[in-house]
């Protein structure tokens, strides 16, 4: 293992590249990404559609192998881990929030939230109990037995956030968490994120191209065409440094 990574760094990427090859084309989606994500911070990856944001968090979350460069998560190299270990690593350390929520539509809110615990082998009743606590924290203590279809978009995304938190992962990745929500609900969801998800021993990476939620970031990394073209604090970013 590389030893040069300081202990306050959750994710370390250096020179990460990824090229998609299909029968007809090759698309260089990442062309040398250098970025560190610290424990305790909320980093936003922003940039136009198709610039490689989803590809980058897929690599960081251990869902996709990069071609070259180094990507360490908690100082572990996921690329060279056997698939089985990597799956286990994700289950223990990473929480996911998806744009389309991906709540299982036949399960109640409580059951959906319990899933990461069930995957880790926690017994059903205990998992449900813990799920109820977390749903309480995201303000859905009254809707434990509701099905996703009975909840609004904002409420569904809260369930998804609860699901990403329930097993207390050290890294949470979110792909466009507010893309399907209206402005007000998006703001509320981001407020909730800051309130319940940020912690000393946790890093948050949120992918978005919704500039209205930029103020909720600690730092913002701007991607374009597979490269990080600027990294700044949210304040710097919003204080007119729009050329960044």
């Amino acid at each position: 293992m590389t030893t040069g990574v300081p202990s306050n760094i959750a994710v370390h990427c250096a020179g990460v590249t990824k090229t998609y090859t299909t029968e007809t084309t090759t698309v260089p989606a990442l062309r040398g990404i250098d970025i560190d994500v610290k424990f305790g911070e909320l980093l936003m990856l922003v940039g136009p559609s198709g610039c490689g944001k989803t590809t980058l968090i897929s690599v960081i979350a251990g869902i996709l192998d990069h071609d070259s460069g180094e990507c360490l998560v908690f100082n572990r190299d996921l690329k060279h881990m056997p698939d089985k270990d990597r799956t286990k690593f994700r289950g223990e350390n990473i929480g996911f929030v998806f744009q389309a929520y991906n709540l299982i539509h036949t399960l109640t809110a409580q059951e959906n939230v319990a899933i990461p615990l069930l995957i880790r082998g926690v017994v059903f009743d205990e998992a449900l109990k813990k799920a109820a606590e977390v749903l309480q924290r995201v303000g859905l203590g009254e809707r434990l037995t509701s099905l996703p279809s009975e909840l609004s978009g904002g409420q569904q995304q809260r369930v998804a956030i609860a699901r990403a938190l329930v097993h207390e992962p050290k890294l949470i990745v979110c792909d466009e968490p507010t893309a399907a929500l209206d402005h007000d609900t998006g703001q509320k969801i981001m407020g909730l994120f800051r309130e319940v998800a940020i912690g000393e021993n946790r890093a948050l990476i949120i992918v978005t191209h919704d500039s209205r939620i930029f103020p909720f970031a600690d730092r913002i990394a701007k991607l374009d065409d597979g490269k990080i073209i600027a990294v700044a604090t949210a304040k710097e970013f919003l204080n007119g440094n729009q050329h960044l």
Binding site: A61, D83, F98, N102
Partner: peptide, 16 residues
């Protein structure tokens, strides 16, 4: 598939 994909991302093994 979407759900199974999400489950696998969240750490469910192929065996599960």
């Amino acid at each position: 598939l979407r759900y199974f994909g999400a489950l696998k991302a969240m750490g469910a093994s192929n065996g599960t």
